[in-house]
Design a protein around this nucleic acid. Sequence first.
RNA 1: GUCCCCGUAGCUCAGUGGAUAGAGCAACCGCCUCCUAAGCGGUAGGUCGCAGGUUCAACUCCCGCCGGGGACACCA
Length: 452
Amino acid sequence: MRTILSAQESYGKGSALAGVKINLEFISANPTGPLHLGHTRWAAVGDALGRVLSAAGAEVVREFYINDRGNQMDLFGQSVQAAALGQPIPEDGYQGEYIADLAKEVLAENPEIIKLEGEPRFVAFREAAYKLQLKDQQRVLATFNTHFDVWFSERSLHDGGSVEHGLDKLRAQGHVFELDGATWLRTTDFGDDKDRVLLKANGDLTYFSSDTAYYINKRERGFDICIYMLGADHHGYIHRLKATAACAGDNPEYNIDVLIGQLVKIMEGGEEVKLSKRAGTIITLEELVEKVGVDAARYTLIRYPVDTPMVMDLDILKRNTNENPVYYVQYAHARIAAVLRNAAELNIASGLDNFDPAQLSHDRENELLGSLAEFPRIVAGAAELREPHRIARYLEELAGVYHGFYADCRVLPMGDEPATALHSARLNLCAATLQVLKNGLLLLGVSAPERM
RNA sequence: GUCCCCGUAGCUCAGUGGAUAGAGCAACCGCCUCCUAAGCGGUAGGUCGCAGGUUCAACUCCCGCCGGGGACACCA
C-alpha cells in the first residue's frame, strides 16, 4: 500500500531488463496499401509489448521496417499509374478502391506528372504514391495510439552499403559459399532445412540478403535483443532468422526472438468474413476502429496470447459494448474515480498520513491487497515471456476483486455518520487500486476514464 | 512430403509440473430509500480431441493418431 501510493505511476515497473537494449520490430507492412486486420493485431500487441518491456527496465526502440524496394513496389507504382491514366490494372497488380484514390491524389498534387513518359513517369507515380501511402499508415497508427521510434527504409539499407557490409561480415564468419553462380549462406549449419541464396546467379540481391543485412545492422546499432513480430505466414522465417544470427556469430537463443502471431478471424452477421485482397474484402485498421473504437479494438486484440488464432465478433462488439471485458476494467476505474471525487467533497482524510493498515481486516480487503501486490510480478512476467495479454487478464481479475470489495465494504460514511480511520484506510485502498488499474491500462495503451 | 499454431463449459478464451480445472458472454434465481447495477451474490453447465509414456504429481512435458488453420521458392 505504502509502496503503491508513494510510487504512483511507477508502481509495477521493475529492473529485470535494466541495461538491455531491445529492438522491437512489428507490423513492417509493405507501403503498398492500407493496414489491415493482421497488422492491427500487431499494432496493438506490439505497442503494448513495447510499453511492458520498457516498464521492465529495458531500453526499447520500436521499429517499422518499410519494404520499399522490389517487385511489389513496382507493381504498386504500375497500378496507380494505370488507374491515373484510365488504363486497366496489370494482371498481378493492386486492385482496391484505394488505388484509384491514390491516383487522384497523385494527380492533384502533381498535375505535371502526366506530361512525363515511360520510366520517369512510372517512377514519379511510384514514388508519389509510396509517400502518400506511408503517410497514411503513419496517420492511422497515430490514431491507434501506436508509436514507432524508427521507420527504417529497406532502400536505405542498400543505399548505405549495409547489404555489402553484411555480406562481408558473413563471409568473414565463414558460412558463405558459391554454387551454380549464386552466392549462398549455409544456414543449414544452424538448423535451417535448406541453405539460402543471398546473391542470385543474375547478380540480383535476394530479399533474404536484405533481411540478413538488416539484422546485422540492428546488432551494430547496439541492440542486445532483436524481437521480430511476424505473421503466421512467416513462421518459416524462424529457422532462417535464427540461423542467420548464428552465422553472424551471435547467440540465436538470446540475441534474436521471433514471435509468431496467428490469424484473426472476423465474424459479422453470424458468418466469417473472408478476407481477400483480391476480392477487396479486407478490413482495415481504420474500419475496425470506426466500428468498435480504439480501446475496445486494442484491448480485444491484446487480451489473447498472439499464438492463439482468435475470433472477433464485430456484432457483439458493435451491438452491446458491455460484453467486452475492457468495459469491466474501465468501469472499475471510473467507479473508484467517483468515490474519490465524493470523498474530496466530504473532506475525508486520506493520504499516507491518514493510513492505518490495522483498520483493514475484512476478507475482501485482504484479497484486494493481495491482488495489488501481485502487479509488479505480473509486469515482469509479461515482459520476460513477451506476453502482454497477462496484463489484461490480471486487470480483469483485479477489477473483479475490487467490485467484490466495493459491494461488501462501504468506503464513505453513510449519511451523517462521522468519518473514521476505517473510512480513511479504505479510501487509501481505493486510491491504490485506481493507481494500479491506471498503470495497467496505460501499459496496454487503453484509456482509463474518470467517468463512464 | 516436411514444418508451425490450435483443440479446455452452449459461445469466445485463460490456465509457466502441484489443491475440488477458471473468467467473460449466453441461460436461470436473487440484490439499488446512501459511495457509478457497465456492478454484486447464487444455480446450472467439463471423459481438458483420442490413445500411450515420463513423474510422487500431467490441461501442462514426450511419442503416435484424429480434427481445424497456416506455411514451403535464386517470390516479395
